[in-house]
Design a protein around this nucleic acid. Structure first.
Lengths: 134, 134
DNA sequence: TGTATACTTGCACAATGATGCAAGAGAACA
DNA sequence: TGTTCTCTTGCATCATTGTGCAAGTATACA
């Protein structure tokens, strides 16, 4: 109503009421799941391994207690970084490579669109989302 | 020495000693800076605005105290998400669109490389980084 | 059926973090 | 020079989080 969809809200207050894909992509729970040194190293470890690994295996690669690793892995699964599968008494975790890479690229695309959009002409309602949804 | 560079460490313990670009890309400080609901909304707000905004402007778009916003913005700058510039008594923060998008894409690429690499044949030393550097 | 293995959960504790209020620092302006 | 504006910093407080130990649960196996 105020601006075109191709542009920007004129100020942050208007931007806050303006719902765009970036709001969904900037999911705090997901990024928080990476934002701890122990978890980041577990994730890197698991990614580099390239296959599902058991909790015991993963715990062998860092100095913290197995129970701590178990909790970190569960948290990363809740955050959407990992997928788990249980076979007998062993639980394996694997990186959700495809989903994660897709989300990161989508976020990168959105950021660049924000950057390139013409200033001062954003229609907050035309993204299929009512104002104030953020 | 043990495997080819194109492959994977055979287990997480070996993977931990194996230094790859993903170790650098999974920077906990950066992701932690997004991993809080208030900060994520501030970042989205700033991104959607598409231009540098002052602390007062940004504070107007959320319900927390201005001092809290100031601290969150400083934290996000330290994490590499934002860049600040001071003009007179006003401080403006802007999203580091290019750097951020680049990092996210690089991480996405690395994740997919991890996923595609042939299992069981990773040379941990050939990435220009001594074992145990992780 | 008992025992070993693999993992999760309860509990306690120390550390960190998010928040608001109030005061301080620095710059513009009358 | 005093006042206003913009932002940062100190302090207190409450909540959350990361951690280890110990106990519990669930599965496999002898």
């Amino acid at each position: 109503m105020m601006q075109e969809n191709s542009g920007h809200p004129v100020n942050p207050a208007q931007a806050a009421a303006c719902c765009r894909p970036i709001d969904r992509l900037l999911c705090p729970e997901l990024f928080r799941a990476i934002g701890d040194p122990t978890r980041a190293s577990l994730l890197a470890c698991l990614a580099k391994c390239g296959r599902p690994c058991t909790v015991t295996e993963i715990a062998a690669c860092c100095s913290v207690d197995l129970s701590v690793v178990s909790r970190h892995l569960a948290l990363m699964e809740r955050g959407g970084l990992l997928a788990s599968s249980k076979q007998g008494r062993t639980v394996s975790y694997a990186v959700r490579y495809v989903e994660l890479a897709g989300l990161l690229r989508a976020l990168a695309d959105e950021l660049e669109q924000c950057c390139e959009r013409t200033p001062g002409s954003a229609d907050c309602a035309s993204d299929g989302c009512a104002p104030g949804c953020a």
